[in-house]
Simulated scan of single mutants.
Amino acid sequence: MRPLLWIVVPCYNEEEVLPETSKRLAAKLDSLIAREMVSGGSRILLVDDGSSDATWRQIAALHDGNLNGVSAAPGVFCGLKLAHNAGHQNALFAGLMHAYRQGCDCAISLDADLQDDINAIDEMIERHAEGAEIVYGVRNNRDTDTRFKRSTAEAFYSLMRFLGVEMVSDSADYRLMGKRSLGALSEFKETNLFLRGIVPSLGFATAKVYYRRGERFAGESKYPLKKMVSFALEGITSFSIAPVRLITLIGVLAVIVSVVMILYALASLIMGSVVAGWTSLIVSIWLVGGLIMIALGVVGEYVGRTYLEAKGRPRYIVDEVLE
Rank of each mutant, 00 (worst) to 15 (best):
A242Q: 14
S171R: 15
E15V: 10
P3N: 05
M293T: 11
A86E: 05
G272H: 03
S109V: 01
H63P: 01
I121N: 02
L263Q: 12
A172C: 10
C11A: 12
E130L: 13
T237L: 00
P74M: 00
E14H: 08
I317Y: 00
V244E: 14
S201Y: 03
M271Y: 03
S230H: 08
A265R: 13
D319R: 08
A267T: 06
F194M: 07
M37T: 02
V298Y: 10
R142T: 12
I108R: 04
G137W: 07
L269S: 08
M177H: 11
A310T: 14
M293F: 11
V298W: 06
Y210R: 09
V38D: 06
V17W: 04
F148K: 13
S71C: 07
N85R: 15
R150M: 04
A91P: 08
V255P: 15
R147V: 15
V318W: 00
I198M: 15
T152D: 10
V283A: 12
N13R: 11
V70R: 09
M261Y: 09
V244H: 06
A276E: 13
F231E: 15
H84Q: 09
N85S: 05
I118Q: 03
R161A: 10
A26I: 06
C106I: 14
E323K: 01
V259N: 06
F77S: 02
A91E: 01
R180Q: 11
N66R: 15
M97P: 00
T206R: 14
L46I: 01
I33Y: 05
E130D: 12
T279V: 13
S273C: 03
V255E: 10
A99S: 07
D53E: 07
V38Y: 01
A254V: 09
A207S: 13
L62F: 13
D116V: 06
L25N: 08
G178L: 09
L287A: 05
E154Y: 10
S169P: 04
P243A: 11
V17K: 10
V252A: 12
A267R: 09
F194W: 13
L4D: 05
L110E: 03
K226G: 01
M97V: 06
V168C: 00
G300F: 07
E16I: 09
S22H: 10
C106V: 14
S52W: 11
A310N: 05
G235S: 14
L46A: 04
A232P: 02
V47R: 02
V260P: 00
E16S: 15
S42L: 04
V135H: 06
N90F: 00
G272V: 02
L233N: 07
A54I: 04
W56F: 12
S268K: 05
A218T: 06
V168K: 08
A232F: 00
G289Y: 06
G219R: 01
L296P: 10
S151R: 08
V165S: 09
A129I: 08
P10N: 05
Y316M: 02
N90S: 05
T55G: 09
A153Q: 11
L266V: 15
A218R: 09
R139W: 04
A232T: 05
F162L: 12
V17F: 06
V298F: 03
V298M: 12
S39H: 12
P200K: 09
L202N: 12
N85M: 03
G69I: 02
T146S: 11
A276G: 01
I292A: 14
S169R: 14
Y264M: 14
A295Q: 13
L5F: 02
V135L: 07
S52H: 09
R315A: 08
G40W: 00
D122T: 15
Q102T: 12
